[in-house]
Design a protein around this nucleic acid. Structure first.
Length: 638
RNA sequence: GCCACCCUAGCUCAGUCGGUAGAGCAACUGAUUCGUAAUCAGUAGGUCGCCGGUUCGAAUCCGGCGGGUGGCUCCA
């Protein structure tokens, strides 16, 4: 038998007989038992694979990202095997891995009850305990189709019929078989630390028109400890869920009679308005002008803007005096009226109209969520009307502003997506190309990494979206920048060029925070409710040790208040520890303690939210500390 | 909108087999004058989401509706 040359990790070369299984090689090399697959010339394969030619070999340990991916995929198989053994007649469809876990979609008339999930889990444990060998098998596509047809697996047949390859691979464990590319763990025994985390309905192939399948979510880890850690992390994430914090910190609430529409309580409203005023300050420096526009327009406007055709499902309508009106879901059409209210010159451009107007969008009942998806909200919205050759400069300025904002809020992790021309589009290819290039160019020159989302642009122009993750790692779009050549056309907007001819301006739709509601929700989670000093509804709480210090505490309270600080006085007859705890739970940035010592020395003892006690100081010294903290956070903004 | 689950005091949650509801925290009252995350005692608080059905009797079983949660689809 011929020999082949295998290069091991670290460069060690080995001559072995052809046909040697990787598993055997591993044993002979004394590689630790923690590996669950290998890479041959960079391609992940099963340990059961036989080596047939010269190659380089790398091990995939269970605890590596690739190893975990394989483990999870195998866990999905284990689950499917358990499900089919418990519930004959249930068909398998697809079962991919996802971040930290996996799911498998089943076709079954009934959905899975919590009790059934328990049964599935314990059957999985039984099957794992049998340590069934996981065997790869290759066969012609046609034979596979016949096999799955015989098994009554219509979905697998459908999948197979769309696979281009003539040769497909199957994986068997015990009497169970699934179509799969692999690789997989060598045997079910290595699957130990898993949990089934949820059930949900999901449409076949993600299409609403298709039948609904039963999806089971799960997670799987290399060790019990890692699994527990993961589950603990999920629990922790729930604690920073903005819906919980919003109630606990008395920021906002909801009422069944106004579903998906937040009520901002005094403290929440303060934060809300503070966010707006932060943006207003920036507007002053970036050449924006704020406008105020109507809430309700004759549907004629929405017909002209295209919303009536493309956005009607998401709009609220009202009929009075035989006239139909639509409540605005966006500000843009209103802004075109201000633009068109007089003759515009190239000298006027760019015009930047900002609008914090309230928007209403009807969202289907199943899609709303806390502050992140609501039916009533406002945006830090603006529309920039400019000449086509001004797009580049506007984008640059916009991206700079965006960076300033996200730096202020310390959002460093976010995905940027450039969405390009969709299938159905307005305008010429040339204009689109230019627009897409200028967006890409702007991102590059600002040094912003981005992904291209081909075909995901708006029908009127390409866009850049900024997506951040919430506490439960769900993505939410905050900022959006869209180039629009269509609205100026529809509203017949023009400006007079230097040559005296009329030209069409371009509209840039943009929001940096996105919706104030969503931004606030994400921000609350981002800082776990501990809002930065400049945003905190209450910045300082002055508290007495006993009521002997009430008078002095009152004067400290007044002095801070007179200086414009948001301060509260806690002069209740409670122990200091109790007051400290309350301030801490309310996440107030500074607690100021006043006891006999402070009265005597005319000082105060501040304590930071994090637990750090500052040394006793004069009120004016604390003010310096506070000021420095605000400047640190906002730079020269304030 | 679709699938599943949940809804008991302001909040977090008990409530067994169907026999008309309970705790902790919060609130209120009183006592306590206290030094950096919870002082003690007492009082009050509920149309068990809403409507209907089954039953001698429903928080509990069944149906409908509303709201919420996790997904899917949508949105972007």
């Amino acid at each position: 038998m011929a020999n082949i040359h295998v290069t091991l990790p670290g460069g060690k070369a080995l001559e072995v007989r052809s046909g040697l299984k990787i598993q055997e090689l591993a044993s002979s090399q004394g590689v630790n038992s923690n590996i669950i697959a290998a890479k041959v010339d960079g391609v992940a394969v099963d340990l059961d694979r036989a080596l047939s030619q010269d190659c380089s070999l790398n091990w995939i340990p269970m605890n590596s990202p690739e190893g975990l991916d394989i483990l999870r995929h195998s866990t999905a198989h284990l689950m499917a095997q358990a499900v089919q053994s418990l519930f004959p007649g249930t068909q398998v469809t697809i079962g991919p891995t996802i971040e930290d876990g996996f799911y498998y979609d089943f076709k079954r008339d009934k959905s899975f009850t919590p009790e059934e999930i328990e049964k599935i889990k314990s059957r999985m444990r039984d099957l794992a305990a049998l340590n069934l060998k996981v065997i790869r098998e290759e066969m012609a596509r046609e034979s596979a189709i016949q096999l799955f047809r015989r098994l009554g697996e219509e979905y697998k047949v459908a999948i197979l019929q769309e696979i281009p390859e003539e040769q497909v691979s199957l994986y068997r464990q015990g009497d169970w078989v699934d179509l799969c590319r692999g690789p997989h763990v060598p045997s079910t025994g290595v699957i130990r630390a898993f949990e089934l985390t949820g059930v949900a309905g999901a449409y076949w192939r993600g299409n609403e028109e298709n039948e609904m399948l039963q999806r089971i979510y799960g997670t799987s880890w290399a060790t019990e400890e890692a699994l527990r850690e993961h589950l603990t992390l999920l629990e922790e994430a729930k604690k920073r869920d903005h819906r919980r914090l919003g109630r606990e910190l008395d920021l906002f609430s909801f009422h069944p009679l106004a579903p998906a529409s937040p009520f901002f309580h005094p403290k929440g409203a303060f934060v809300y308005n503070q966010l707006i005023s932060y943006m207003r300050d920036l507007y002053g420096r970036y050449g924006y002008q704020e406008v105020v526009t109507p809430q309700i327009f004759d549907v004629e406007l929405w017909r002209r803007s295209g919303h009536y055709d493309h956005f009607r499902e998401n709009m609220y309508f009202t009929r009075v005096e035989e006239r139909e009106f639509g409540v605005k879901p966006m500000n843009c059409p209103g802004h075109t009226f201000i633009y068109a209210s007089k003759k515009r010159s190239y000298r006027d451009l760019p015009l930047r109209y900002a609008d914090f107007g309230r928007l209403h969008r009807f969202e289907k009942s199943g899609v709303t969520a806390g502050l992140t998806r609501v039916r009533s909200f406002s945006q830090d919205d603006a529309h920039i009307f400019c000449a086509p050759d001004q797009i580049g400069a506007e984008m640059a300025s916009l991206l700079k502003m965006l960076r300033v904002v996200y730096q202020t809020f310390q959002f460093s992790e976010m995905q940027v997506r450039l969405s390009t021309r969709p299938e159905h589009f307005l305008g010429s290819l040339e204009v689109w190309q230019r627009a897409e290039e200028s967006l890409a160019q702007s991102l590059k020159s600002e040094g912003i990494d981005y992904q291209v989302n081909p075909g995901d642009g708006a029908f009127y122009g390409p866009k850049i979206d900024f997506v951040v993750l919430d506490a439960l790692r769900r993505g939410w779009q905050l900022a959006t920048i869209q180039l629009d050549f269509s609205m100026p056309e529809r509203f017949d907007l023009t400006y007079v060029t230097p040559a005296g001819t009329e030209a069409r301006p371009v509209m840039i739709h943009r929001a940096i925070l996105g919706s104030i509601e969503r931004f606030m929700g994400i921000l609350i989670e981002h800082c776990a409710g501990a809002l930065p000093l400049w945003l905190a509804p209450v910045q300082v709480r002055v508290m007495t040790v006993t009521d002997q210090q009430k008078e002095y505490a009152q004067s400290v309270f007044e002095e801070l208040g007179a200086g414009g600080w948001r301060v509260e006085l806690d002069g209740r007859n409670e122990k200091l520890g109790y007051k400290i705890r309350e301030a801490q739970v309310e996440k107030i940035p500074y607690a100021v303690v006043i006891g006999d010592r402070e009265v005597k020395d005319q000082t105060i003892s501040p304590r930071r939210r994090g637990g750090e006690s500052l040394k006793p100081m004069a009120v004016r010294e604390l003010v310096e500390v506070l000021k420095a903290e605000v400047v640190q956070a906002l730079g020269e903004n304030r």
